[in-house]
Amino acid sequence: MSALSISLSGLQAAGQRFEASARRIVAAGAEAGNALLAASGRETTDGQSADGDQSPATGAPAIGFSPDMAGAIVDMMQAENAFKANARVAGRISDMQKAYLDMLGNRSTR
């Protein structure tokens, strides 16, 4: 397996991890929002609030971060850093391969 394919696999894995973390954040936020609406007594059977608005009741506490949401944000930041690192490695490998081919090309013209 070449170094470039390893780097590209790392890019793909980091992208998938980033997407999974984003989904966890959305799910945690939706869950917290639904719990807030249910606690305020404004939710109807179809998931809409009684007055057709999705906003929480006036004076209701802010949604805030759940532990799952905070963990997902940390995972997302780690995935972003892994993606950047793998992209840099792929770029360096590409530069090295280009330099190698240039050296071979110069040697064959002599």
Results as ranks from 00 to 15, higher is better:
F18A: 04
S21A: 13
R17A: 13
K84L: 06
S108D: 15
R92C: 10
P56E: 00
A50P: 10
R88G: 08
I6F: 14
A30M: 13
A79V: 04
Q54K: 13
A87G: 07
A57V: 01
A28Y: 02
S7R: 07
V74L: 12
S66E: 02
M103H: 15
A35W: 08
S66I: 04
A62T: 11
A79W: 00
A22L: 12
M76W: 00
S66P: 05
R92N: 14
A27H: 10
E43I: 15
S94K: 15
E80G: 14
F65R: 11
M1K: 15
M1A: 14
E19G: 10
A35G: 06
G71R: 06
D75S: 01
G52P: 09
D68H: 03
T44F: 07
S66K: 05
I25L: 07
A70H: 05
F18N: 02
A62M: 01
A87Q: 03
A3W: 11
V74T: 15
G41A: 01
A99G: 06
V74Q: 13
S49I: 01
G105M: 13
P56G: 04
L36V: 03
R42K: 10
E31L: 08
S7K: 06
I63A: 13
I63C: 00
E43Q: 13
M77Y: 12
P61I: 09
F83Y: 03
A90M: 02
M77A: 14
S2C: 05
Y100P: 06
D68T: 07
L11E: 02
A30K: 14
A14V: 00
A14N: 02
G41P: 01
N81I: 01
N106T: 12
S2N: 03
A57S: 11
A82V: 04
E31Q: 08
D46F: 03
M69Y: 06
R88T: 13
A22P: 05
L4I: 09
M96D: 15
K98V: 12
S7P: 06
N106R: 13
A90T: 02
S66C: 07
S55C: 13
A3E: 15
L37D: 05
L4E: 09
G91H: 03
S5L: 09
L101N: 14
S5C: 09
S5W: 00
I6L: 13
A39C: 09
A70Y: 00
G91R: 08
A85R: 04
R88Q: 15
Q16S: 11
T58V: 14
Q48T: 15
S7W: 03
A20P: 05
N86S: 07
R107A: 15
N81Y: 11
A60C: 01
M76T: 00
S9F: 03
R88H: 02
G64Y: 00
R17H: 06
Q54G: 15
K98L: 13
Y100G: 11
A13M: 01
T45R: 14
R88W: 09
S9C: 05
A79N: 07
D51Q: 10
A38C: 02
A38R: 14
S40N: 11
A57Y: 00
Q16M: 04
G41F: 06
G29S: 08
S21G: 06
R42F: 05
T109N: 14
A32H: 11
A20E: 07
L37Y: 08
P67T: 01
V26S: 13
G15W: 06
N34M: 11
R17D: 14
A99Y: 08
G41R: 00
S55P: 04
D75T: 01
Q78W: 02
R92S: 12
D102S: 11
A14T: 03
K84E: 04
S21R: 05
